[in-house]
Write a protein that binds this DNA or RNA. Structure first.
Length: 485
RNA sequence: GGUUCCGUCGUCUAGUGGUCUAGGACGUCUGGUUCUCAUCCAGAAAAUCGCGGGUUCGACUCCCGCCGGAAUCACCA
């Protein structure tokens, strides 16, 4: 297999969100699969849109997802620097080469004149193409002057690894700007030069670049450089409508999901499989399985709608998978920042016991905050919750009080507070009281937790411990007795 | 408007001429797992394969037209 050398080349204008991270994931997978190179290059040529700190945010996101780069910021590499603003002179040099070859020209036309060309063409209902207004005599280039490509419009055909065979007419090929007035290159030009210098042989980007591709083809031709593999990645669509998912749709940053307790494994799995599959019915893929099974030509060629519900389902699957495979201790390490405040004073071993009985109902790690409070502090006493429960309300308060009396008597007789003993005691209580599990267990469960739900009763009591259990049951019993007076 | 791309259950998708009375997953609904919530298990509903023509013994699959959706037409990327 040919080694894929590819890159993720974001511009530092903000965070990476669900809608644009796939253009990092797929190239990464292709590079790793082939034993090639994954480059991170920061395209910071638009000074107006530059956002301070965005580069760090981007790197943070890639690291979290496990998309480590082989060359780029922080680690450098044979083609450094990896910030385009630091490569400024290079682009000018290459643009001048084109001028020398008669394939580019310095353009002295002022913006107002350009605008009037555009307006005229629009009024005449002809496509605006700058090459129809190309100045006849272009001056010697000097700083402050843009450089434009001298296009050679002709029908072009090319192959896209996702879209297949594509073609476009001369109408889309124009004298694009190579170097801007400010001396910095446009994306259209800079990426061609950088990709060549960095030996990039695969370019993956969103489908919005499809219509610019003929211009890129013309540049490859003008430089006589080999065209890389071209990969167009369809958009991820917003939950509503048919538009691509963007920040305006409230697309959350990838790291926001991290902070909400989504696992990177699940995020990578979900995103990779949104618009790609290996043709089998497998749903859960590890990173190494993705690397092994990935193929460009199985990327879907239409947009895929983002479905957070499925992401959360997948996160639940991954939580259970990690616990099954690596055990509670290893999984616990990932949860440390997600416990409720009240858990702070408890030691790790207690929290691990809680985790062991609650993990299989987590969708995200942050669910721990909502679901485990009663393990760490006495729950808010709410007798109404007990009395309105659909099973418990069948019994009178007097009956409940005497049931709790029986229960506490039985439970207090247990010396070894083990799961086994608790289970047996609960079963015996069912027999001696003659109550249905729904009635008796609901009474106990609510009395000790006042939570909408909890793990299996014997497990819950076991973790709470004898002292806490007896105290909470006693408190409810007293309240019921008091009520009757 | 020009150019270009896309079009299978609500959603993500399998499907490369017959095995498709269209398979899987999420979601929804039903039942089971001694209480709850979740997991897990079993089952159900859910797609006239955008529409219309062709080619063919036979089309979701090939061709043409149409319709619908999207992208792009910057000294932004």
């Amino acid at each position: 297999m040919k080694k894929i050398i590819t890159r993720f080349a974001p511009s530092p204008t903000g965070y990476i969100h669900i809608g644009n991270v796939r253009s990092a994931i797929y190239p990464y997978l292709a590079a790793r699969q082939s034993g090639g190179t994954f480059i991170l290059r920061i395209e910071d040529t638009d000074q107006a849109r530059y956002v301070k700190g965005a580069t760090e945010l981007i790197m943070d996101t890639l690291k979290w997802l496990g998309l480590e780069w082989d060359e780029g910021p922080e680690i450098g590499g044979p083609h450094a620097p990896y910030f385009q603003t630091e490569r400024k002179d290079l682009y000018l040099e290459w643009a001048k080469k084109l001028i020398a070859d008669g394939r580019a020209y310095a353009d002295p036309t002022d913006p107002n004149t350009i605008q009037s060309y555009r307006d005229e063409d629009n009024a005449k209902k002809v496509p605006y193409l700058y090459r129809n207004h190309r100045p006849e005599n272009s001056p010697e280039w000097q700083p402050g002057m843009p450089i434009r490509f001298k296009s050679d419009p002709k029908p072009r055909k090319w192959h896209d690894e996702v879209m297949g065979n594509l073609s476009a007419g001369p109408e889309v090929q124009d004298d694009i700007v190579l170097i801007k007035k400010d001396g910095l290159p446009t994306y259209n030009f800079a990426h061609i030069v950088d990709d060549f210098l960095m030996n990039v042989n695969m370019v993956a980007r969103g489908v919005e670049y499809l219509s610019s591709t003929p211009n890129y083809l013309a540049l490859y031709e003008a430089f006589g450089i080999e065209q890389p593999l071209l990969v167009s990645l369809p958009h991820i669509l917003a939950p509503q409508g048919n538009k691509k998912l963007g920040k305006r749709d409230g697309a959350k940053s990838v790291t926001e999901y991290r902070d909400d307790g989504v696992l990177p494994e699940a995020m990578l799995n979900y995103l990779a499989c949104l618009g790609w599959n290996d043709g089998t019915e497998q749903e859960i893929y590890t990173k190494s399985e993705l690397i092994e099974k990935f193929s460009l030509d199985r990327i879907q060629n239409s947009g895929a709608r983002y479905d957070e519900v499925k992401l959360l389902w997948m996160n639940g699957q991954w939580i259970r998978k990690l616990v099954d495979e690596q055990g509670i201790d290893a999984f616990y390490e990932r949860t440390v920042s997600f416990w409720p405040k009240s858990a702070k004073s408890y030691d790790d071993s207690y929290k691990k016991r809680v985790l062991a009985i609650i993990y299989d109902r987590l969708k995200t790690l942050s669910d721990l905050r909502e679901m485990t409070g009663y393990f760490f502090e006495d729950p808010k006493f709410d007798i109404e919750q007990l009395l309105t429960n659909k099973f418990v309300k069948k019994l009178s308060e007097q009956e409940l009080a005497s049931l709790l009396e029986t229960v506490t008597a039985k439970l207090s007789s247990i010396d070894d507070w083990s799961e086994e003993n608790l289970k047996n005691a609960l079963n015996e209580l069912l027999k001696t009281t003659g109550k249905k599990p729904a009635e008796l267990f609901s009474l106990i469960r609510i009395s000790v937790s006042f939570a909408p739900f909890s793990p299996a009763l014997d497990l819950t009591l076991n973790v709470l411990g004898k002292e806490v259990t007896m105290s909470r049951l006693g408190k409810v019993k007293n309240a019921l007795l008091l009520d009757q007076q």
